[in-house]
């Protein structure tokens, strides 16, 4: 039982990180109809920004983390929007989908060539010490991940629902034409979405890399987990993405122990198939309401 609880906590911690990536994925889809097939690489990359800042810039870890966030905002936020999404979205969904797939390959190979093909250890923000709470051994690192991930999610939810800018972003996501008619600066709201996605990817990267190491190819699994989490959650809901992320995280930790680590990566795929078969609108999702 204690083992199970330990596993559950580990699963929720990984799941919360998947949720960060899935929320970003969902927000991008909602506000700009961008399905970002490079989302996994977006989570892989910021850790390497930090590693590079430490290795070549001699930066201390905390500064390297800030550099990673700043670079992510710039490259995965502003440049991604300005150089890839904006020019292509006019031509429909398909060119953009293909470009994000191309981007994912480019980022993978870029990191492999520029940094290393080996998995890199990544410093943990919290010490990996076990403490015992009510007979259950939990690692401080996991607790730290949980607190940060849920803290970020909480702040984001508050921002989207509790501030006027956040509500203007929601309005833009729900109906951009009407938002424009009311004078909402729609373009700026879309930019904010890209920045939030970049920041979420950076957070996810800094949290997951100490657990699974930083590796050029880790985006494949991460991207799949985020994608499935978003689908499980209904694809157009932030709340759904949170639930989806946690479900995927818990199931893949359980599968790794109770079934076999070899099957761990199959968990998201199995979930995806089940969802498509039995609940195509997602767990919390409703039928698509957007008026096109």
């Amino acid at each position: 039982m204690a083992d199970f609880l330990q596993l559950l906590i580990a699963g929720i911690a990984t799941g919360a990180i998947y949720a960060l990536a899935a929320i970003g994925f969902t927000l991008l889809w909602q506000t700009s109809q961008t399905i970002n097939f490079a989302q996994g690489e977006f989570v892989m990359l910021p850790a390497f920004f930090a590693l590079a800042a430490m290795k070549w810039g001699g930066a201390p870890f905390w500064l390297a983390c800030l550099v990673a966030v700043a670079m992510s905002l710039l490259i995965l936020g502003v440049a991604f929007k300005g150089l890839i999404v904006d020019p292509l979205i006019k031509h429909g969904a398909m060119p953009l989908v293909i470009s994000t797939i191309g981007l994912s390959i480019f980022l993978k190979d870029g990191v492999k060539d520029a940094y290393s093909a080996e998995a890199q250890p990544f410093p943990a923000i919290f010490p990996d010490r076990l403490i015992e709470i009510l007979g259950v051994k939990v690692s401080l690192a996991q607790i730290g991940v949980l607190i940060i991930a849920f803290g970020v999610i909480f702040v984001l939810q508050w921002f989207l629902g509790g501030t006027r800018i956040g509500r203007q972003m929601q309005a833009t996501a729900q109906n951009p034409t009407v938002a424009r008619i009311l004078g909402v600066p729609v373009e700026r709201m879309i930019l904010y979405t890209f920045l939030i996605n970049a920041a979420l990817a950076a957070m996810a990267s800094l949290l997951i890399s100490p657990i699974y190491l930083a590796k050029f190819s880790s985006g494949e699994t991460l991207g799949m987990a985020a994608f499935v989490a978003a689908i499980v959650g209904g694809f157009n809901q932030v709340r759904g993405a949170i639930a989806g992320g946690i479900i995927v995280g818990v199931l893949d930790n359980m599968a790794a122990v109770y079934v076999s680590t070899a099957y761990r990566q199959a968990v998201p795929l199995v979930l995806l198939v089940l969802i498509i078969l039995f609940r195509p609108q997602g767990l919390l999702g409703r039928k698509e309401e957007r008026a096109v």
Partner: peptide
Amino acid sequence: IPQGRNIFAELTVKHNLELGGVA
């Protein structure tokens, strides 16, 4: 006020009104 349904269904009535004041 365009044709059709132009409210933000998932926001509250009050927040819909508030969005009318963006400008």
